[in-house]
């Protein structure tokens, strides 16, 4: 239902949106790009693991795009920047993954956090390479070989972000339905038995981890290119926390939760910042509290439940909640 009707309909709306509400383009570009790392977080949550360090791959993607753009001169070409960011996050994901997949739960979360904070410090301290806390300027690259004006470029990035989002959501959805995806989910409930089926839990988790790192890296490159800058904050732990927050907000039981969460998160941030001044964090906190207390399966999870109730379907899946996301429709 979600993947056949609702998601395609939303994508269609997003595709025609620039014709009617071009003032939303920038907002939605950020929503789409920042949903990518959240898809990665949701993927890892299927295996019962939470990473509080995925911002490191977000930063790897953004800085990589910046470095490659500068190296190519004049900002480079966006396709090459994205491919480079993808490659860099595969390498970084493998490197960090080999260490972290040996651990579970709080140790997994904290080890990720530790790695990300190491990267944060390096980005801050190596001022002559990274620009330190001022950040690294990312010049506007060419767009599929075309030198575009700023507004055309932003429209191009909007559609590119939308395409990447659709490919990622569909890809991860398929992945979760594949044997390897089911093995990931099995790690969450009974890792011993996974081993006794002849499947390596570590290898399975490593595959999931690298995929999630790539999603975060590509998302970071898109945000960096769009905003024209990468800063060490991209790797800071609060950003990792934000990804987890958004995953829970949207619903960690379904890949589209990443889009729903990202949209609502950015919407609250923008409107609360406009109307409530500096209290937008307070607003977000209250929203998170509400979600955890009243809708632990997030926005998408609650919609699925509501849909089931309307259609009178008896709940087939077990009750899902945070850290126990069972709902895969």
């Amino acid at each position: 239902m979600i993947m056949r009707i609702i998601f395609p309909a939303l994508v269609l709306l997003a595709a025609i949106n620039p014709l009617f509400f071009p003032q939303w383009d920038a907002f939605l570009t950020i929503v789409f790009a920042k949903a990518l790392p959240v898809i990665g977080i949701i993927l890892l949550l299927q295996a019962g693991q939470v990473s509080f360090g995925h911002a490191m791959f977000f930063a790897v993607g953004a800085y990589c795009a910046g470095f490659v753009g500068r190296w190519m001169g004049g900002g480079g070409e966006i396709v090459i920047l994205l491919v480079a960011a993808l490659g860099a996050s595969v390498v970084a994901g493998l490197f960090v993954g080999i260490f972290v997949v040996r651990y579970r739960y709080i140790f997994f979360a904290m080890l990720n956090l530790a790695f990300s904070m190491v990267l944060f410090s390096l980005l801050e301290k190596f001022i002559h390479i990274t620009g330190g806390s001022d950040g690294f300027r990312i010049a506007r690259p060419t767009f599929f070989g075309q030198q575009l004006s700023r507004s055309d470029f932003e429209l191009g990035v909007y559609y590119l972000a939308l395409v990447l989002l659709v490919v990622s959501i569909y890809g991860v959805w398929r992945l979760l339905d594949s044997p390897i995806g089911h093995a990931l989910k099995a790690i969450k409930t009974n890792e011993t038995r996974v081993e006794y089926l002849g499947i390596s839990p570590r290898r399975t988790l490593l595959i999931g981890y690298v995929v999630s790192a790539v999603l975060a890296g590509v998302g970071g490159a898109m945000v960096g290119v769009f905003q024209g800058i990468a800063t060490p904050d991209y790797a800071y732990w609060t950003r990792s926390g934000e990804f987890v927050f958004v995953a829970i907000l949207g619903g960690a039981g379904h890949v589209t939760g990443a889009l729903a969460g990202s949209y609502v998160f950015e919407f609250i941030r923008v409107t609360a910042a406009a109307y409530l001044g500096d209290t937008w964090q307070l607003t977000l906190g209250v929203v998170l509290l509400g979600i955890i207390l009243f809708a632990p399966s997030g926005i998408v999870g609650s919609l699925i439940k509501l849909g089931n109730r309307v259609r009178g379907v008896k709940e087939k899946r077990s009750q899902s909640s945070i850290g126990k996301a069972g709902e895969i429709a």
Binding site: L175, D177, S178, I180, H182, I199
Partner: peptide
Amino acid sequence: LLAAASRAGRLAPFSRLA
């Protein structure tokens, strides 16, 4: 199916388990 897929060495990422 997960057991059967493991036995048959079918742990590819994009085929459907079902």
